[in-house]
Write a protein that binds this DNA or RNA. Sequence first.
DNA 1: CGCATGCATTGAACTAGGACAAGAAATGAA
DNA 2: TTCATTTCTTGTCCTAGTTCAATGCATGCG
Lengths: 193, 193
Amino acid sequence: MYSQINKNISRYVTFEPKELEIFNSLLEYKTVLKKTIMLQEGEMCSFEAFVIKGCVRKYYIDANGLEVILQFAIENAWVSDISFSIYEDNPSSVYIETLEDCEFFLFSPETKEELFAKAPKFERAFRILMQRSLAVTQDRLFNTISKSATEKYLEFLEHYPTLSQRVAQHYIASYLGISAEFLSKVRTKIAKL
Amino acid sequence: MYSQINKNISRYVTFEPKELEIFNSLLEYKTVLKKTIMLQEGEMCSFEAFVIKGCVRKYYIDANGLEVILQFAIENAWVSDISFSIYEDNPSSVYIETLEDCEFFLFSPETKEELFAKAPKFERAFRILMQRSLAVTQDRLFNTISKSATEKYLEFLEHYPTLSQRVAQHYIASYLGISAEFLSKVRTKIAKL
DNA sequence: CGCATGCATTGAACTAGGACAAGAAATGAA
DNA sequence: TTCATTTCTTGTCCTAGTTCAATGCATGCG
């Protein structure tokens, strides 16, 4: 049960069995049905979730109701809702929704602190995790700015080959920052080649 | 001399004077002239720089030569070149260039490890720093996708009021993901209101 | 089984922003 | 001060992507 997450957390930092035991004892296991919005605004902030099985999307909605998907998380990925609206005048909100029936390990802010207190080496693991997320997000920002819709879609297929089978097209469009209709046109153009 | 950086690093974590002493002793002070490209590809990777004075831009260049500015860093900001090309087939490269004469405190990867070994609490501070960078980058990604050029420019002015005086327009355009010419048109349109 | 709702496709009309080019203004070096 | 280089502006034309229908397809649900 814990082997998946232990392998993941040990990717950049090596832990003693005892440390992993502490880690595992603090995890909360949870199953969530498809199409559930997990994040009720304000209720549980700054949580960290590890996807054991399933698929979720994390998205923001701006003042005009526009939805932008910032992340898909599938097996062995982490999702967190690190609060984002740094600029107070700009209250866009974070949502995390399951797209399939899911299994998670969850950390509340408190248990995370408990973990760091009992096994400080995890601070390091989470720092590196954050750093990787940052690298991925910067990559995405760069692609969003510099690539055409077709290029973005082809790269998406390459990097997330399974996802295009698992989630609806219009979610992929939202992730790529293009309209669902245009993605459809891009796809038929690609198919004709 | 160290008060600026000590205040910054203590923002989310409280340190003992002794810890700050260790921190300060490991910092490398460096001045760099205007218009210097600090990051020669591959030479010094994963460094962390704290801007004491001046202004730098961090940017990527894609396969077609297009430049995208991912960050401006001014006084009291950190810049790092956390490697970004996760996808090996896609060798876009990171550059960091000073736009003004600058003063820095620098960390090499080795001295950073030394710091973590001698004063592990800094691991926490850097984790939180990373987390904030991630939040800022996600915010930027969201804005890039969901806002018009005019909106993006107005928000830029609001959030970085001094920067528009300090750096060339076409750099701001590159940061916002629009062409320099179009930014100029946006500006004249705004001025007429 | 039939119906309803959401999803993908396609087309037509429109627009935000890009690319190119040429001139004006500013900056800076000698 | 002058010349050169870079930056900014403005105009024209062009295109990638949007918006708004309308239609056909699935899929799930009573």
